[in-house]
Simulated scan of single mutants.
Amino acid sequence: MKLVVQVPCLNEEETLPLVLGSIPRSIPGIDEIVVVVIDDGSTDRTVEVARAHGVTDFVHHRRNMGLAKSFTDGVSYALSIGADIVVNTDGDNQYPQERIADLVQPIVRGEADIVIADRQTQLIEHFSPTKKRLQRLGSHVVNKAAGTELPDAASGFRAYSRESLMRLNTVTRFSYCMETIIQAGNKRMAIASVPVVTNAKTRESRLFKNTRQHVFRSGLAITRAFIMYRPYVIFGWLAAVFGVLGLIPFARYAWLEYQGEGGGHLQSLLLGTALIMMAALSVMLGIVSDLIRTNRSLIEVNLEHTKRARFDAPHYPASLL
């Protein structure tokens, strides 16, 4: 069984030696371990440092393309060299690489498709109380959308089986973390969690400028992924809310008419009509979105077949190519 550990890097020459030096050289159940450094447009000596520490496999971006693109390109490279399991870590040494052995075991035993490290954010000292609450809230929202029970949905320290990567498709450009969980949950993949303790902070996050931007971008990613797989829930609730709100002005107008005071309250009819129209529009958008969801499901089946034809041709049934 071949394990590929991919390390996305953007100017990580200072911390990369700590990461590479702590990656296990042997793991029970794993026959081969390959480290792949994804150079996301680094302008320092990241690549030279990686080569000095024995890394021979690289994915290069000529300019910074972001974490999601780095993850996707790294996965494609890992699959192309025959990876059975792919572990994603970080170049800033946030995650304890020595726990990779524990992270992959549920996949090695055939118990999980994806394993996500639980950073136990309540124990992270440099996380403010507000950030800890937001992390819990974000995980709760993602779990609701995915039908999962993960304590740390935002963790990027993960292990994926080859089979799961064949079925996952990343769309967002910000971060793949939330989107892949929602996809995996709605595709009924087995997702496990392993508690870890993170290393000391080495630098500020480069994914976002501040907490507000992080919340906004994460919220957009969650909403987009949720609409992709369960649009009828969102638009159904919108239709119900607008419908109930639209009936209230009509009820008010009817009551005033009954009291003999309805002539001067036509604004109630206008407001009620507008709200009912919004409810009807939500229903139509829900129908259209559900049709798009069905079409997306069919496209993803074709994408899975394409991936298998590209990466698993010798082992893939000819009847499905």
Rank of each mutant, 00 (worst) to 15 (best):
T72L: 14
V194T: 03
S161C: 01
F235W: 10
A318L: 06
P17Q: 12
I222E: 02
R293K: 12
V233M: 11
I227D: 14
P317C: 07
R133T: 02
L3N: 10
N186E: 06
R167H: 12
R217G: 00
D312G: 01
A184E: 03
V171L: 09
G243L: 12
I299L: 09
F157C: 00
L298A: 10
A254L: 15
S128Y: 07
Y316A: 03
R224P: 00
L256G: 09
T170H: 01
T46V: 09
S70L: 04
R230T: 05
V142D: 02
E179Y: 03
S26Y: 09
W237Y: 13
N11Q: 11
V244A: 08
L168Y: 01
F242V: 04
N295F: 11
K307T: 01
E32S: 14
R158C: 02
D31T: 15
H214E: 08
M166T: 01
V37T: 08
P195W: 02
F58L: 12
E14K: 14
S164H: 00
D44N: 15
P8N: 05
F311Y: 15
L247I: 10
E149K: 03
E13K: 15
L79I: 08
T56Y: 05
V75R: 02
G262M: 13
K187R: 15
T198M: 10
D73Q: 14
H315M: 04
H53E: 04
D92T: 08
S80T: 09
V108F: 02
K144A: 12
N93W: 13
A254P: 05
D39N: 15
E261W: 12
V171H: 08
T306E: 14
V4P: 01
G41F: 07
F250M: 10
M189K: 04
L67R: 10
P24R: 05
R173G: 02
T211P: 07
N302Q: 14
K209I: 09
H60K: 14
P314G: 03
A318R: 10
G156P: 04
A240C: 03
T273W: 05
T211W: 11
H305V: 06
L266K: 15
S161N: 01
G243S: 14
G219P: 01
L321I: 13
